[in-house]
Amino acid sequence: MLWLEVVGWAGSVLVVVSLMQARVLRFRVLNLIGAVLATGYNAAFGIWAFAVMNGAIAIIDVYWLVRLLRERHDERAYTVVDVGRDDAYLRHFLGVHGEEIARFQPGFALADDAHGFLVARGDEVVGVVVVRDVGDGVGLVDLDWVTTRFRDFTPGEFVYRHSGVFAAHGLRVLQVEPAPQMREYFAKVGFTPGATRWVREVEAA
């Protein structure tokens, strides 16, 4: 039947496309849909070895999707590491991802009065926030960037949740000048539009 052939080809295409995705969540979703379609196609034609294999892949995808979505806002899954400005790994991380950071935030440079906060998931650094002390208890967010794999999870929010890391540096207020594509994100992590910059108060440590 023609429609079954379409289903089979669609499943195969989605599985291949999923393997080309750098983002973890997008990979799992596309792989799951492809595996489900492939399972149905192979079962319809009695190709049970491939039906079972794709069914198992679908179950594995569901497991990881549930886990990833559950940990999306789980403070136990992410750690904020206060590393200062001159930390060797911070500079290494910024250097490795420099080209991509420049595409998202042209002109970014690590200022003399800046401070870095790395966001780690287990032993993997997945994001960085750089804040500059501009005086009077105000911190200006120069950079909030996440690696491609975890861009669907916005792990940078954990830096703002742990407001004590900013209060420890004498900051009372955070400000940012978000690019248009970043405004929805900064609204989600507690910033509100101001006259010239978006603002978020820092909770006491």
Rank of each mutant, 00 (worst) to 15 (best):
residue 3 W to K: 09
residue 66 V to A: 14
residue 10 A to K: 01
residue 134 V to L: 05
residue 191 F to W: 08
residue 53 M to Q: 11
residue 45 F to N: 09
residue 80 V to I: 13
residue 55 G to M: 07
residue 174 L to C: 02
residue 11 G to Q: 09
residue 191 F to H: 06
residue 205 A to T: 01
residue 73 H to M: 02
residue 115 H to S: 03
residue 6 V to H: 04
residue 70 R to T: 12
residue 137 G to W: 10
residue 6 V to E: 06
residue 24 V to L: 15
residue 21 Q to H: 07
residue 200 R to Q: 05
residue 85 R to N: 15
residue 22 A to E: 07
residue 74 D to W: 09
residue 132 R to V: 10
residue 182 M to E: 09
residue 168 A to C: 02
residue 158 F to E: 06
residue 195 A to E: 13
residue 142 D to F: 10
residue 41 Y to V: 10
residue 140 L to H: 14
residue 153 F to T: 13
residue 43 A to P: 12
residue 183 R to G: 05
residue 160 Y to V: 00
residue 40 G to W: 05
residue 205 A to R: 13
residue 146 V to Q: 12
residue 67 R to L: 11
residue 180 P to R: 01
residue 162 H to P: 01
residue 21 Q to M: 15
residue 57 I to L: 15
residue 88 A to P: 11
residue 108 F to R: 03
residue 188 K to I: 03
residue 70 R to E: 04
residue 153 F to W: 12
residue 117 F to K: 00
residue 184 E to V: 10
residue 146 V to L: 04
residue 183 R to M: 09
residue 146 V to S: 15
residue 14 L to R: 03
residue 90 L to G: 02
residue 124 E to M: 08
residue 65 L to K: 08
residue 161 R to L: 06
residue 48 W to M: 13
residue 101 I to R: 05
residue 194 G to A: 08
residue 92 H to S: 13
residue 75 E to I: 05
residue 5 E to C: 04
residue 24 V to Y: 15
residue 172 R to C: 00
residue 54 N to Q: 12
residue 73 H to R: 14
residue 4 L to T: 03
residue 76 R to V: 14
residue 18 S to E: 10
residue 63 Y to C: 01
residue 178 P to V: 06
residue 39 T to A: 14
residue 58 A to W: 05
residue 199 V to Q: 05
residue 46 G to C: 12
residue 181 Q to C: 02
residue 151 R to I: 05
residue 68 L to E: 11
residue 178 P to A: 10
residue 131 V to G: 00
residue 36 V to P: 08
residue 71 E to G: 08
residue 193 P to L: 02
residue 193 P to Q: 04
residue 68 L to S: 09
residue 63 Y to S: 04
residue 177 E to Q: 12
residue 79 T to W: 14
residue 83 V to D: 11
residue 127 G to M: 03
residue 65 L to I: 14
residue 104 F to V: 03
residue 68 L to M: 11
residue 137 G to C: 05
residue 41 Y to Q: 08
residue 74 D to S: 15
residue 44 A to G: 04
residue 28 R to Q: 11
residue 72 R to Q: 06
residue 66 V to K: 09
residue 104 F to G: 02
residue 49 A to I: 10
residue 3 W to L: 15
residue 128 V to M: 09
residue 178 P to R: 12
residue 166 F to Y: 04
residue 81 V to A: 12
residue 135 G to A: 08
residue 73 H to W: 06
residue 15 V to S: 00
residue 33 I to K: 07
residue 198 W to A: 04
residue 167 A to L: 03
residue 89 Y to E: 15
residue 78 Y to D: 03
residue 36 V to A: 15
residue 140 L to Y: 14
residue 108 F to Y: 14
residue 16 V to P: 01
residue 151 R to D: 08
residue 14 L to V: 00
residue 70 R to D: 10
residue 185 Y to S: 05
residue 56 A to Y: 10
residue 78 Y to W: 15
residue 117 F to A: 00
residue 80 V to L: 07
residue 188 K to Y: 07
residue 191 F to Y: 15
residue 197 R to H: 14
residue 88 A to K: 12
residue 161 R to F: 00
residue 9 W to S: 01
residue 145 W to G: 01
residue 112 D to N: 08
residue 166 F to C: 00
residue 149 R to E: 11
residue 48 W to D: 07
residue 34 G to V: 05
residue 117 F to M: 00
residue 170 G to K: 06
residue 113 D to A: 14
residue 101 I to W: 04
